[in-house]
Design a protein around this nucleic acid. Structure first.
Lengths: 319, 319
DNA sequence: TTTAGTCTGGCAACCGTTTGCAAGGGAGGA
DNA sequence: TCCTCCCTTGCAAACGGTTGCCAGACTAAA
């Protein structure tokens, strides 16, 4: 059996409360006693039981992290960064995957509610109203969504979309297809907003779509048929699917159609042609979100991170 | 404040123990009382506090899942499957990333030890000796490693490597480069074992290497220089980096050099040329590992899952 | 009607830690 | 020398559940 605080107390002849204080309020215990306790604890391999601690303090030192799909390469860097940051704050992270299903998302939040000190909601698929309601049960920090009075980390998608469109117009493109993602996604809305007010452009909207390669593959034919010479895709996965679909139809990228994605995920960097994309600061967002959650305890504060257009090989001059 | 068992008890005029039993041993309470309790619990939105339960029962209903690198596309499908399986067993999963560092791995296990019922070790970088020692603190299930007396999920790498080599020899390749991964990795050992006893082959070993794109990129020049007409790479990421490096040197794949990877990750499917690879059943492994851990409680039992060679575009006839 | 047996639900101890309260001892000031 | 005050430590009550034990109410058999 693992050593408990009692074993340590017995081992060096003090009361359990003294041992407890040695760890949680060291300044309250005599240095001599403290080092005796520390020695004994080390000797017995004592580690405080977090569950027991949570019981009295009400703090679990755990946090939840909910993403739509772990298998989407956009999330792992974010998760990784969030975890590292949390570990530095003595927190542990429960990662969960909703399979893009709002109902699963809700259930997951409810389950987490009692056993974590806060939840990081990354690219949620739930409605704002629902999120606000669930916030009564547990503090949130949200990534890629603006919810009233809630700490949020946003990525400047509008800026990125603007740069992407400028890049395309600079290459002579006029008729541009906009391939959006799932309903309720922040990125989709931002993209469309920017595009809608771009002057002198001939836009064609396609959506909603699955935010995956399959989603891109599925609309490829429609996009090809609409006569656009360039495409702005919801994310890199969709862009990659699109390129796949277009090549299957013998349509060359970027020779006949230019494609831009969002995220800057690994497969895009490895693809032929290498994908031109708007890089999202996923790791930074993960770190910020953790800090925001821990500092604010769920109170509002918004951080917006810059995005950057990375021009690679999937965009070129309009025919 | 969240409703506790006491609130429920008060709400329907029974003792807390009755409420407790309604959930943990329903057959011990009268159906009429039971439904009254259930109604009250539902009404108050009561959810048992897992930390408190863990305190008395000694079971946390949490499990740890440790991987070398979440950002390696091989792991997300495994994690996802493990999580789904765990959820079905009313378990939650803590995912952690060791950054390929054995020391971090050890520290992580120690931290987990007291707060989970078991740990899934995926592709560990720790030595067997160390793993056996740590197993005294917490039950393990291991993926991609064979440790004495410990439940393990293995992937039949040997079989896959054999098929891959047969495929290559069938295409006329004789001099084949073997690009291995990190020291202590099961896959590396298996690969080398099989290759070493393949008859009539002219093998060149390169390793150890980082199991990433960068690792592949770094050995590309050496591989090119050694005169091999085909490469068996530690994993898809390495294979992709290799292809990248070879193209930079104007060496065509598969025209001049054939490349085979392991894992069958998304970027490989999307790459040009599409990667020929040995598919690893990652999702199945995740599910099996969870079940093994929960059933065996750390006692030995080994499951070996089949792999499959997927021939795509990165392999061709030897010059 | 008595007796034994079965259901049901209350009681209280316990899990490992934290924390407010109070007591004892020693130091410093008057 | 006595009185304060501070420092250190012990005591005990929580935190939210679980569970062995016991007692009362019923049922069924004798």
């Amino acid at each position: 059996m693992a050593a408990t605080i009692k074993d340590v107390a017995r081992a060096c002849g003090v009361h359990v409360s003294t041992v407890s204080r040695t760890f949680s309020a060291p300044h309250l215990v005599n240095p001599a006693t403290r080092s005796r306790v520390l020695a004994a604890a080390d000797d017995l391999g004592y580690r405080p039981n977090r569950a027991a601690r949570a019981l009295t303090t009400g703090r679990t030192f755990n946090m939840g992290l909910i993403v739509a799909d772990i298998a989407n390469p956009f999330f792992p860097p974010l998760i990784k960064a969030a975890q590292a940051q949390a570990r530095g704050r003595d927190y542990h992270v429960f990662v969960a995957d909703t399979d893009e299903d709002p109902r699963v998302e809700e259930e997951l939040i409810r389950t987490f509610a009692k056993q974590v000190d806060g939840v990081l909601l990354c690219s949620p698929r739930l409605s704002n109203r629902m999120i606000e309601r669930l916030a009564e049960d547990v503090p949130f920090a949200v990534v890629n969504r603006r919810v009233k009075g809630m700490p949020a980390v946003l990525m400047n998608v509008a800026q990125g979309a603007k740069h992407a469109l400028e890049h395309l117009t600079g290459l002579g493109h006029r008729r541009i297809a906009l391939v959006s993602g799932p309903i309720g996604s922040w990125t989709s809305n931002e993209m469309q907003g920017v595009a809608a007010e771009a002057p002198g452009l001939d836009l064609v909207f396609f959506g909603p779509n699955q935010p995956t390669e399959a989603g891109g593959l599925a609309v490829a034919a429609d996009v090809a048929a609409c006569g656009a010479t360039a495409v702005l895709a919801y994310n890199d996965l969709v862009a990659l699917g699109l390129i796949e679909g277009l090549s299957a139809m013998e349509i060359g990228v970027p020779d006949q159609v230019s494609v831009i994605g969002f995220d800057d995920i690994l497969p895009g960097r490895l693809n032929r042609p290498k994908l031109t994309t708007v890089a999202m600061p996923a790791a930074a967002a993960g770190r910020m979100a953790v800090d925001l959650l821990l500092q604010s305890g769920g109170e509002g504060a918004t951080v917006t991170l810059d995005t950057a257009l990375i021009v690679r090989e999937s965009t070129g001059r309009a025919q």
